[in-house]
Amino acid sequence: MPEALTTWFPDLDAGELARRADRHAFEHSISLGLEPSNAPADRLTVNYLRHEFTRYDEEPTVERHREACEAIAARYPWLAAECAAQIDRRRDAEEHDRDAVAMYEVQIEQERAERRDVTARSREAVKALSLGQRVRFKKQGREYVGTIAELGPSRVVVAYEVASGRDRARNLKLPAIDVEPVI
């Protein structure tokens, strides 16, 4: 179980906290080579208190962020609305990130399944092909005719020529299902 959040908040009024937070944000931006922040004073103040007067940075999780913001709101009631807004923004950002990762993983699995399907179908299609056989294929929307130069378990290498350019002879490795015998 994580250790309880430790804080050491200063005993300063709202004006002094806002001035220190603004200076802190300015110096931090400059140290990173960024433009100074134009965020509202309450946001800068909550960020300043969370980063400088809690151990949040040692474990910057959603839970720690919430605990830090709740501690700030308890100590400085005038910052409670900003603390609640930051908790909501952080939670929403984490949910968005989780959703994006889940969508990415689904997309990757779909692509793997498609590659497995192409490979399985190509393993069958290559059985009907032979070295030296003339075949038709498409590349970048154009149709070409070439000769099978190599046969693999699921792929073929097709030798063909292009109509222009100095080096007209080309080889292209393709899944066997992407070539069609020329009759």
Rank of each mutant, 00 (worst) to 15 (best):
residue 88 D to Q: 09
residue 137 F to E: 12
residue 59 E to H: 15
residue 47 N to M: 11
residue 17 L to S: 10
residue 80 A to D: 03
residue 74 A to Y: 04
residue 143 E to Q: 11
residue 49 L to V: 00
residue 78 W to R: 03
residue 64 R to V: 00
residue 113 A to C: 13
residue 52 E to T: 03
residue 44 L to P: 01
residue 137 F to S: 10
residue 99 D to G: 09
residue 51 H to D: 06
residue 41 A to D: 10
residue 91 R to V: 11
residue 52 E to L: 05
residue 40 P to S: 12
residue 179 V to W: 00
residue 174 L to G: 03
residue 170 R to S: 00
residue 181 P to G: 04
residue 46 V to Y: 02
residue 30 I to C: 12
residue 52 E to K: 01
residue 97 D to A: 08
residue 114 E to K: 08
residue 50 R to L: 01
residue 138 K to T: 07
residue 61 T to W: 15
residue 162 V to P: 07
residue 73 A to I: 00
residue 71 A to E: 06
residue 167 D to E: 14
residue 29 S to T: 05
residue 59 E to I: 10
residue 69 C to G: 03
residue 34 L to T: 11
residue 134 R to W: 06
residue 18 A to S: 13
residue 139 K to W: 13
residue 8 W to K: 15
residue 83 C to N: 02
residue 28 H to E: 13
residue 129 L to C: 08
residue 18 A to R: 12
residue 35 E to L: 13
residue 147 T to V: 08
residue 68 A to R: 03
residue 106 V to Q: 15
residue 81 A to Q: 04
residue 80 A to F: 02
residue 72 I to K: 00
residue 124 E to Y: 13
residue 61 T to Q: 13
residue 13 D to T: 02
residue 132 G to P: 14
residue 16 E to R: 08
residue 36 P to A: 09
residue 114 E to N: 08
residue 156 V to A: 04
residue 130 S to G: 11
residue 128 A to G: 04
residue 140 Q to K: 08
residue 74 A to D: 09
residue 178 D to S: 02
residue 148 I to H: 01
residue 42 D to T: 14
residue 59 E to G: 07
residue 52 E to H: 07
residue 6 T to K: 15
residue 52 E to P: 00
residue 144 Y to I: 07
residue 17 L to C: 04
residue 133 Q to D: 15
residue 174 L to N: 05
residue 15 G to I: 05
residue 182 V to C: 02
residue 84 A to R: 01
residue 150 E to Y: 14
residue 110 Q to F: 08
residue 55 R to A: 14
residue 62 V to H: 09
residue 57 D to N: 12
residue 114 E to Q: 13
residue 179 V to I: 09
residue 85 A to D: 04
residue 23 R to I: 13
residue 135 V to H: 01
residue 171 N to L: 14
residue 26 F to E: 14
residue 64 R to F: 08
residue 98 R to C: 04
residue 71 A to F: 00
residue 120 A to E: 13
residue 180 E to T: 10
residue 116 R to T: 12
residue 7 T to F: 11
residue 59 E to P: 04
residue 52 E to D: 12
residue 48 Y to N: 02
residue 10 P to C: 14
residue 52 E to S: 11
residue 4 A to D: 13
residue 123 R to G: 07
residue 142 R to C: 03
